[in-house]
């Protein structure tokens, strides 16, 4: 046997366990999902080929588009605040010689390792309408109880209600229930972005700041012109990570609003497709929705690469 062939056989031998698992549980399911998205199938009777019908049904369904909107609200709510607070705390924690830095870091990272289910349980309890501590505190200050998880009105609409203005549906904003779920998302992300930003800050050489100080730049100016541009790779990385994970939020939704929230206002795409598959057994339709979701995530990622990566300073 020649040595090249021997080497190839050895190589395949070493990757065969991983490759087998991936073929059976990732590549085959991917093809199967694609195939299924063109069929109508309820898991018990024979699958019927329906062409693009599932995709057309989804794209013309109000429920599907609503779930897309709620997902978008969630992503746009979680993303900026996770980045902002992460950067904010990273800058405060930048000086490694400050007392207690290690303890703060440890505390800020605790929500990141907590499971979304457990975290959602805690938040659910805090925001219970009758016994939750959030309302107890509001009462204490003489305020009215808030029905956090059961009021379907969008928060922007709530604000404009004061002036008797009613907004078009798209502009009404997320319901309070979704806002609470967004808060939970931010709470779980901040520690992660703090750590990533801290690593970014450590790689910025102090000579930049010294030069800027010599030129008489204020601290604010050197933050704006040195820190922020040099952190853009971290920001970019975090945006991609958070976008991908936020589009797929599911567990917290199911814990806090098991039926999809007041008037379905927390029924994000994954929740919608889960219910289509396992409550109504519309398997083909659910797979079409899953591919549309993947398309959305891809679009969002490509958008970020195209329009934001250019601004990443390297």
């Amino acid at each position: 046997m020649n040595s090249k062939l021997k080497k190839t056989i050895k190589g395949y031998f070493f990757i065969s366990p991983s490759a087998t698992v991936m073929i059976v549980f990732i590549f085959f399911p991917l093809l199967y999902a694609f195939f299924m998205s063109f069929h109508q199938w309820d898991m018990s009777s024979q699958a019927i080929f329906v062409g693009f019908q599932n995709y057309v049904l989804a794209l013309t369904s109000t429920q599907f588009w609503n779930s897309m909107f709620y997902t978008l609200y969630y992503v746009l709510g979680v993303l900026p605040f996770s980045l902002f607070f992460g950067l904010f705390f990273a800058i405060l924690l930048r000086d490694g010689t400050m007392r207690g830095v290690g303890i703060y870091r440890m505390i800020y990272f605790m929500p990141v390792v907590t499971s979304p289910i457990a975290a959602a349980m805690g938040f659910n309890w805090i925001f219970q309408s009758q016994m939750g501590i959030a309302n107890h505190i509001i009462e204490k200050f003489g305020g009215q109880d808030v029905s956090w998880l059961t009021n379907p009105t969008g928060i922007l609409q709530m604000f404009f209600n004061n002036f008797n203005i009613s907004l078009p549906t798209i502009l009404q904003g997320p319901s309070l229930a979704l806002v609470v779920i967004i808060l939970l998302g931010i709470w779980q992300n901040v520690g992660y972005s703090t750590v990533v930003y801290l690593a970014g800050l450590q790689s910025i050489s102090s000579t930049y700041y010294e030069a800027a100080a010599l030129d008489g730049a204020s601290e604010w100016k050197s933050f704006w012109n040195i820190t922020l541009p040099l952190l853009s790779p971290s920001t970019f990385f975090l945006m991609i990570m958070f976008t991908i994970s936020s589009f797929q939020v599911f567990g917290p939704i199911q814990i806090m609003t098991p039926s999809g929230g007041p008037l379905n206002t927390t029924s994000v795409v994954v929740f919608y497709l889960y219910r289509q598959a396992f409550s109504y057994y519309n398997m083909g339709y659910a797979m079409a929705v899953a591919f549309l979701l993947m398309g959305m995530i891809l679009l969002a990622t490509i958008f970020q690469f195209k329009f934001l990566e250019r601004r990443v300073y390297e």
Binding site: F27, L30, A33, M36, Q248, F250, Y274, M287, A290, L293
Partner: peptide, 17 residues
């Protein structure tokens, strides 16, 4: 590349497998 595939997309066929 498999890292880019959202988990939920695969879950139903994975379930069937």
């Amino acid at each position: 590349a498999t890292m880019m595939i959202p988990g939920q997309l695969l879950m139903i066929p994975q379930y069937l497998v």
